[in-house]
């Protein structure tokens, strides 16, 4: 499971860097970088990210999960996706 988490973490980070932070130094995007509250993700990029995660991992997000509680950092995102995969 740790491998799975690491893979999700890496894939998500790569997607965010490529789509929303082109040219950014990857080391600047840390596990705790605030994505929603920090303005990296707005509503459109958030649904884009959610679409990517749903399609990549075959999971479904509930509307209430699109919030800072679950998506504000890479760590929280990874934990949510991992939990969904674990319960699938």
């Amino acid at each position: 499971m740790p491998d799975r988490s690491a893979e999700i973490h890496a894939a998500t980070k790569a997607f965010i860097l490529q789509e929303f932070l082109p040219g950014e130094d990857p080391s600047e995007l840390t596990n705790g970088t605030p994505l929603l509250s920090g303005g990296v993700l707005d509503s459109i990029s958030t649904v884009k990210l959610v679409g990517f995660l749903e399609d990549t991992y075959g999971i479904e997000f509930a509307a209430h999960e699109i919030s800072e509680d679950h998506l504000d950092t890479l760590d929280r995102l990874t934990a949510l996706v991992t939990a969904k995969l674990g319960s699938a």
Partner: peptide, 15 residues
């Protein structure tokens, strides 16, 4: 505006 942004993307920077 949203459709344009979804297509073209909205590049941001952490710094």
């Amino acid at each position: 505006n949203s459709l344009l942004q979804a297509r073209a993307g909205a590049a941001r920077s952490l710094r």
